[in-house]
Structure formats: structure tokens, C-alpha cells
Design a protein around this nucleic acid. Structure first.
Lengths: 244, 244
DNA sequence: AATGAGCGTTGCGTATTTTGCAATCCCAAC
DNA sequence: GTTGGGATTGCAAAATACGCAACGCTCATT
């Protein structure tokens, strides 16, 4: 594994949180300024970062170009997009699309509620596995080995009083999820927000992603959210069907 | 300048053009497979790239997250966005926002024509300096040293019969551009597309970006495009005013 | 089922590359 | 003009990345 590259990627992620000065970055990484400077220079040359007149660094425009492509390259996202929009319009609720990527569950697309209630999730960022509908769906779909490995290493961070906090309870929950074909999140990640999620499969039956609906309980209580289940499952079906 | 990082960035750019296999990448870079593999692995660990079941590599979701931020961090873009939308709606034509970045002119934002006539430009990608309205505007605004340096090293690639192909003619054109305060592109970059562009200045008068309108001549001939000039200049004014 | 081709992957020694230090430079403020 | 903070460069030491060659894996072909 490449050290300098690793550091460079850390720099990019740090710049993602806001602009930084040279030795701000050096301090964060715990390396010498010189090192950071040279990494920044190579990235600047390729427009991955840019530097303003006061020598503050920000992300560069090359990332725009790549990111747009990255989105399009996400096959799941491409296929799912129109169906998600439909689901979003029909229900008026926040819709998430997530995919299993490298041992994590990543939000790949998000359509906000028409009521524009703020939600913490963000496209490109990993979802918690033990307390989100998409996380449960995708974790439940993993082969046993992998699933158990994850169960053993999860940190079971407590987000709300409802958060599942140990491997045994989560294992049971995944079992249920798998059997009935959809997952719930009863205010386990964000208080006052309930979610339901369903898996997307390719033609071989392999699960390639998950869709979810998130509804703040000021709008609908949990039972009312369950009434949206048919819509959700229909959407998941439709996407899976399109996905050849 | 960091070699391994440089190669990694090349890989990312290459993946931007489509998915690649390991030694496809190795061949492109002219290095050993092993080298590429390790770079890919570090990038995969940070989700800058991902790998499907058939070991083909694509851009990863970390880029989504970063790029969204990068866009927001572009101050010019942030300030300009609403004004661009207005200009786009009023004129119905394609609007571009570009900024000077590291010796190049980069498209930072783009709003398509309502007629959705295809244009080649893409956000995050450099614009040609000698044959685009934004290129001329921003080049004309550079200090003389820099401007002459660029004039001397440009490749004056010929895109259409109207493309300016030598430094002397371009120098004259820049002079005109600077004096009248806006630039034209009479089918110099794409045949049948005329553009006009105007500079954006901060409070000190320093030019920080450029806006342009692009119109295919099946819609409007050049003189009709000139009738949009007041709108364009008003937009540029408004953005500059907002940009404190 | 056996063979082989085409990839991806790993261990390892070498040498290139990267790193941190210290000195220098630049610019801005006093 | 001087001072100070930050950026920058040259250099030598050392860690790191590199390519090689061997190994493994998967898939297709016989």
C-alpha cells in the first residue's frame, strides 16, 4: 500500500471538510510541511486541488469532472434513478439508494422529502450497518462468513434509545429481515425518524443495492409508514427487473 | 513532485473515461502491473475507486462526497449560481461559468439551453483559450507577463475555419476584448455556435471568472446574439456586485 | 477431468523516491 | 529597514515503492 498516496487521499478528504492552510494539513496528518507541500503540488498540477492567493487549499475542479462520471458509472444508480424519482413523488418522502461497497454500505443516491425535513445522510458517505434500513438489508444479504465477520467487528454505536447494541440482537434482526424481504428502522438511527428498506437484486438473485423510505414521525407514525411498504417493494421490484 | 501520487491521479483520470482492468491501466501508464495494483488498493481502501466482481475498476463513491463539497467551495460558483439561472431562463440559451485556475480556464458551471442543443463543454474540464468567449475574457484579464507567456505557448489548435491560429491575431483580439469589456466567439470553437462572454470582478476589480452565452445559429444569427449582450452584461454586473 | 491460457496476486531485494531537517526566501507588518 | 511568519528549496538518510519472477486462481477448451 502506497504511503504517499494514502496521505494524499487523506488530504483530499480533509479538504472536503473545508479549506486548509499548509501546516494545518501538516498537523492533521502528523507529517512535515514539506511532505504535504509536495503532495499538494502534484495534485494542484492535475487540478485535484487549487490554491488561492492566500495559499489556502481547496478541492479542485478535476474532482467535479470525475465525480459526475463516477455517478454515471454507478450502474445501480443509473437503473434505479427514474424509479426512485417516481417513489419520491408518489410518497413525498425521503428516498435513499445504497450499495454494498468494499465492506461498507454507501449512500449512492438521495431524494429529499418534499417537506424538506433535514436528514443527516449524505451521498457518498457510509451508512451505519446496525441501525439503518439499507444497512440491515445489505448486511442480511451478505454471505454468512462475511456477515459474521462484520457482526463481530461492528462498533454498535448508540444513536438513539432504540439502537441495537449487540451482535446477537442484530443477528436476529437480520434473520427477520431476510425472511420477510424488507428491513425496518424504528427510530434506531435518528430519533423520530422511521425507515423501511428493501433489497435490489440482479438477474441471478444477488443483492446489489437497497432502497429505503425515511419518514419523520411528525408526518406519519410507524404504522402509517408501513402502509407505504407496497409502494417501496414495487419500486424495488421494478428496479430489479430493469437491472439485467 | 510525488511520482506515485502522480500515477494514481492518472489512474483516476483514466477511470473517468470508463472502467478499466488492471493491466489495461498498467499499459496506459507504462508501469508494471504490481505498481498499479498497489495504487489501486490504497485508493480502494479510501473508496476513491471500487472494483467489481470481475476485477474491473471504476471510480468510487468517495468522489461523490468530495465533489459535492468541492462545488460548494467554489466561491464564484456559489455567488453566481442564482444569477446564471436567471440568465438561462430569460434567454433560454446555454450559460457557462468559467474561472481561471492554475494557468487554465476551467468550466465551473453550465446550464443547458432549454432547446437542449448538445454542447461539447463539460464542467470541470479546461476551455480552449484562443477560441472561446470565456477563454478570451479571462486571458485578456491576466497580467501582461502571464498573458504573453500563455500566448507564446498556446497550441492554437484549429477547431473551425474561424479559429484564431496565431499569437498576433489573438493578441489583437484580446486587446479589443479588454477595451470593450466583453468577448465574442464567432463559431471559432464549434461551427454554427456563436458565443459572447463577460468578465466577473471582485471589489478590487480583479477578474475572478467569466460568464458566457452560447447560441447555435439555427436559433439566432450572430447579430441576434448581440442583442442578448445587455442581459449578459447585466448578469455579470449583478454577480460582481454580489461578490464582495 | 485434465490442460493451458490469461489474469490477478504475492515475496523479495534493490534502488529510486520520499521524507524531514535546516537553511533560505518571500512578503507583509511594524 | 527590520522583524517575523509562512512558504520554499537542497540535501543526505532511510524508508518506500518498484519491477521481477514465481505462484494461484478462474475459465474455456479439448
Amino acid at each position: 500500500m502506497s504511503q504517499s498516496l494514502g496521505r494524499a487521499l487523506q488530504i483530499l478528504k480533509s479538504l472536503g471538510e473545508g479549506e486548509r492552510s499548509l501546516d494545518q494539513l501538516a498537523t492533521e496528518l502528523g507529517v512535515h510541511k514539506t511532505t504535504v507541500l509536495r503532495l499538494l503540488r502534484t495534485m494542484e498540477a492535475e487540478r485535484f486541488v487549487r490554491r488561492d492567493a492566500q495559499h489556502r487549499y481547496r478541492l479542485g475542479s478535476q474532482l467535479f469532472a470525475l465525480a459526475d462520471v463516477a455517478r454515471e458509472q454507478h450502474v445501480v444508480r443509473q437503473v434505479a434513478a427514474p424509479h426512485l424519482r417516481e417513489l419520491n413523488q408518489k410518497t413525498g418522502q425521503t428516498v435513499h439508494l445504497a450499495a454494498w461497497e468494499n465492506g461498507e454500505v454507501i449512500y449512492v443516491d438521495k431524494l429529499d422529502s418534499v417537506r424538506s425535513v433535514r436528514m443527516y445522510s449524505q451521498v457518498g458517505v457510509p451508512a451505519a450497518l446496525h441501525c439503518t434500513a439499507v444497512g440491515k438489508v445489505l448486511l442480511a444479504a451478505q454471505p454468512k462468513r462475511q456477515r459474521e465477520a462484520v457482526l463481530a467487528t461492528l462498533d454498535y454505536k448508540v444513536y438513539t434509545p432504540n439502537t441495537i447494541t449487540d451482535a446477537d440482537r442484530l443477528r436476529d434482526e437480520l434473520q427477520v429481515t431476510k425472511e420477510r424481504g424488507w428491513a425496518q428502522d424504528k427510530a434506531e438511527h435518528e430519533s423520530f425518524i422511521n425507515c423501511i428498506g428493501a433489497p435490489l437484486s440482479d438477474s441471478t438473485g444477488r443483492v446489489v443495492g437497497a432502497v429505503s423510505l425515511s419518514v419523520p414521525d411528525v408526518l406519519l407514525n410507524y404504522d402509517q409508514v408501513l402502509e407505504l411498504l407496497p409502494e417501496l417493494l414495487a419500486t424495488a421490484e421494478a428496479i430489479s427487473a430493469d437491472y439485467n
